[in-house]
């Protein structure tokens, strides 16, 4: 027995000199990088696949329908002045959310609904008296 143990510095040096095991770490590094890059590619692929569902988040279909129902069912209870004031309130409420909304009066019972924010610009012609206000424009055909 030459020595009971190595001094601290010598032991460290011995570990440092032993390099053969590091190929394992190197290999695992390569594998890890591969997994990471594949996962990111895959994620982008997934995002592309759900475009139709994501569109729902940005297109305000329910807000617009709400506005159409108000025009159809509430405007009839109001005179011109009150209607004007109601539209102003709706404008203000939407403005606080960064959206421009307007019912431009074209003639009596005929409005142009405008809905515009950073993502969507939407207008629709509304005939409040006419049942056809409910029809999606351009796709209807006959009454039946």
């Amino acid at each position: 027995m030459v020595k009971k143990s190595l001094r601290k510095g010598e032991r460290k040096r011995e570990l440092r000199n032993d390099e053969s095991g590091q190929v394992l770490i190197l290999f695992s590094l390569i594998v890890a990088t591969l997994i990471a890059s594949l996962a990111i590619l895959h994620a982008q692929n997934l995002i592309a696949g759900v475009e139709s569902s994501r569109a729902f988040l940005s297109f305000p279909k329910d807000d617009i329908r709400n506005l159409k129902v108000i025009a159809r069912l509430d405007f009839q209870h109001l005179d011109c002045d009150a209607e004007e004031k109601l539209i102003d309130q709706i404008k203000l409420l939407y403005a606080s959310k960064g959206t421009y909304v307007d019912f431009e009066t074209i003639s009596s019972h005929h409005y142009q609904l405008v809905y515009s924010n950073s993502e969507v610009y939407f207008t629709e012609s509304l005939y409040v008296e006419d049942e056809d206000i409910w029809l999606p424009s351009g796709g209807g055909g006959g009454a039946s």
Partner: peptide, 13 residues
Amino acid sequence: AFTLEGITAALLI
């Protein structure tokens, strides 16, 4: 040292 590297590699992944 070898075992240590095996564990390190496994942990890394």
